[in-house]
Write a protein that binds this DNA or RNA. Structure first.
Lengths: 345, 345
DNA sequence: TTGTAAGCGTTATCAC
DNA sequence: GTGATAACGCTTACAA
C-alpha cells in the first residue's frame, strides 16, 4: 500500500504538505502544489492508513454495537426481534455516512460490563450504541459511571440522564386505540408485557390514555400480560374467551407483532374470524406481518429515522465537551392492513 | 488511560521489559521482574492500546462483514432471511474467540467493489467474510483479483478457487425426500428457486438424486420455481392444484421456509389440511417455523458450526503465506415437526 | 507557502 | 536479563 511518503516523493513535496492538501486543513497551499499533490495521490492510488491516522488523533472512528441483548436470543426460537435486526442496517449506514463504522460484538448474557469495559480500556471504540435497553439497564449504568460516550435506542430509568432516542410507544398505541374507537369498537383489550417492562408500560399507558380520552372505562379484564412470545398471544385469546360472551373484547392491541401472531393463530383455531369477528393490531411491523392472513394492521417503528437520529446525536456527544443530554421521542405510524373491521354487534 | 510507560514507571523497569512480559514473547525475563510488571499493570488497570498495537504490527484484528447483500433487502418486506441474521451472532462470537472483531458495513446494491476496495486501501480490515454469495459474485471475483484474504459462507462459480464453507443443500434435500419416501409418498414435488440460483440448484440436485435413488421417475410438473417470497409459495400451490387430481403431489419440499409458509397458507386457504392431506418441508429453520400451525418440518442449517468453521478457516488463510484453498460442506439436519404425514391414498 | 520534526503507544532489534 | 531506541504512518506545531 502506498503511504504518504510515496505521495510526497511523487509530488516532489514534503509529507506535511500532502497532509495539508488531503485534509483540506491549512488553506495556505498554493493552487499548483495542491494540484500536484492531488494528482500524485490519484496516480499512485493513495488512501490514508486509518490505523495511523487513528493513533495520531487518538480515536478509532468505530462505534461499538452489541447485537444480542435480551436473554434467550441465541436459539432460533428466541431470535424473533427482527426490528433490531432491521435497525442495524440503518444504524450502520448512518454511521458510515458520518465517517464511522460499526464494530459489532457479543457478550455473555447478564454480564455486559466486562466486555464493554475491555472495549473501552483497549481503546477499541469511540462510543457505543445501545439497543434494547431495559429498566435498571446495567450497560447504561456502567457507561454513565465510566463517562464513556454512548447513545441508546430505548429508554431506561427516568432518573438517569443519558442521550437516547426511542419510539413513542404511548403515542403509537393511542393511534391504534383511536383507530379502533373510530371503527366503533367499545370492548378493546390490550396484550401487554410484564410489569417490569419499561417499553411495555409506555405502550400500555397509550392504551389507558386513549380510552380515557374517548371517555371509555378501563376494564381490568381487558389487560393481559405475557412474554414476547407467540405462545403468550395464544394464551391471551384463551383468557379473553373465558370472559362472558357479552364482555369478550371485539378488538385487541398487542404490544408486539409476535404476540399478535399468536393471537391470530389461536383466534383462527377457535373459528374467530380475525379481520371480521375480531380485530387485531400489532406493534413493530416485523417482516412477516404483511404476509399473514389477514395482513396485520400494525404500528410501524420509524427505524430508519431512529438510526439516523442516534448517529447524529452521537456526533453531538462526541464533538461537544459539554454533553447536554438530548432525548428524542419519535412517533410511530399506524399501518392499516386487513386485520381490523368494525365490530359485528 | 494508562499506557505502557505508566506500567514501566510503576514497575521500575523499561517499556521494553513490560512489553516482553505482557506479550510472553521473550522468555528471558526473571521471575521477580515478571511478577512486578504484572502486578503493576494490574494495579493501574493497564490494557494495551489496540490502535498503537495495530499500527506497529500492521494489522487491525478487524474482519469486514457486509450484512446486507441481496437486492431488496432494505425494506421490511425484503428483510426475511433471518438465517443470515442469526448467523452473524455466531460469526461475531467465533471472531471474538479468535481475537478479532466484526466490522459490519453496508454497500450500495449491485456495486460492492468500491466499498470493499476502500476498506482494503485504508487498511481498515484484515479480511472479509462474505455471505449470500451468488453465481458470478462480484465480491468474490474482486477479492480474488486483489489477493485480499477472505472466506465465504456460500459457494460461487466452481472454477474460482477460494475458501468457502457451505451448507450441503443437496444432502439436506435428499434427507427430506428420503423421509417423505419412507413415509410412503410417491408424488413428491419441489419448490425451487430460479435457474440462475446456485444454492437453489444444489438443493434441486438433492431432490433429483433422492428420487433417482428411490427408483422414482422425475415428473417435470413437480418442479416449480419461484422467488424467495411467501407469494411464490402460494403460486406454487395454485400450480400444483391445477394438475389432474390423481397427479397432484402429496408432499412438497420447499427450498426455503419462507416459501414453505406461502405453501402452507395457500393450502390452508384451499382446505388442504397440511400435515395430513399435504406434507410440507421447508429449508432453513427460520425462527417462525416452530410456531406455525402445523409446526413446520424443515432442514436446519448448521449455523453455529458454519460461523466457527469460517473463522477457523480465516485464521488459516491469515496465518499461512501459502493459502491452499480449503472448502467445507456441512450437512444440515432434518428437524421433524408436524407438517408431514403418510399420504392418505 | 512549505518543510522539519515531535509524538501518538506499541513492538522488536540491538546493545549492554 | 534488561534498557535504549527505531519504526509503524500519520497530523500538526513551529520554523524557515
Amino acid at each position: 500500500m502506498p503511504t504518504i511518503k510515496d505521495v510526497a516523493r511523487e509530488a516532489g513535496v514534503s509529507i506535511a504538505t500532502v497532509s495539508y492538501v488531503l485534509n483540506n486543513k491549512q488553506a495556505a497551499v498554493s493552487a499548483p502544489t495542491r494540484r500536484h499533490v492531488i494528482e500524485a495521490a490519484e496516480r499512485i492510488g493513495y488512501r490514508p492508513n486509518v490505523t495511523a491516522r487513528n493513533l495520531r488523533s487518538s480515536q478509532t472512528r468505530l462505534i461499538g454495537y452489541a447485537w444480542y441483548d435480551a436473554p434467550g436470543n441465541e436459539a432460533p426460537s428466541g431470535r424473533l426481534n427482527s426490528v433490531l435486526e432491521w435497525f442495524t442496517f440503518y444504524l450502520a449506514r448512518a454511521a458510515e455516512q458520518a465517517g464511522y463504522h460499526l464494530l459489532t460484538f457479543t457478550y455473555p448474557i447478564g454480564e455486559p460490563e466486562p466486555t464493554y469495559h475491555e472495549l473501552i480500556r483497549t481503546g477499541r471504540v469511540d462510543a457505543f450504541v445501545l439497543a434494547g435497553t431495559v429498566a435498571d439497564d446495567a450497560r447504561v449504568q456502567f457507561l454513565i459511571e465510566q463517562g464513556f460516550p454512548f447513545v441508546s435506542f430505548g429508554r431506561s430509568n427516568p432518573e438517569w440522564q443519558f442521550p437516547w432516542v426511542d419510539t413513542d410507544g404511548k403515542e403509537g398505541v393511542q393511534q391504534a386505540v383511536n383507530y379502533l374507537v373510530g371503527l366503533g369498537h367499545r370492548r378493546i383489550a390490550m396484550l401487554g408485557w410484564p410489569e417490569h417492562s419499561l417499553t411495555g408500560n409506555f405502550r400500555l399507558a397509550g392504551y389507558l390514555e386513549a380510552l380515557t380520552q374517548a371517555g371509555m372505562p378501563v376494564n381490568p379484564n381487558y389487560i393481559w400480560r405475557g412474554d414476547h412470545t407467540v405462545q403468550a398471544g395464544r394464551d391471551a385469546v384463551e383468557w379473553f374467551c373465558r370472559l362472558p360472551a357479552s364482555e369478550q373484547p371485539t378488538a385487541i392491541v398487542a404490544v408486539s407483532d409476535l404476540m399478535a401472531i399468536g393471537l391470530m393463530q389461536e383466534a383462527a383455531r377457535r373459528g374467530l374470524d380475525v379481520g371480521r369477528r375480531l380485530s387485531v393490531i400489532g406493534f413493530d411491523d416485523v417482516p412477516m406481518t404483511e404476509f399473514l392472513r389477514p395482513a396485520l394492521t400494525t404500528i410501524q417503528q420509524p427505524i430508519p429515522e431512529i438510526g439516523e437520529a442516534l448517529i447524529s446525536m452521537l456526533e453531538t456527544v462526541l464533538n461537544k465537551q459539554e454533553a447536554d443530554v438530548a432525548n428524542l421521542l419519535i412517533p410511530p405510524r399506524l399501518v392499516i392492513r386487513d386485520s381490523c373491521a368494525p365490530p359485528l354487534d
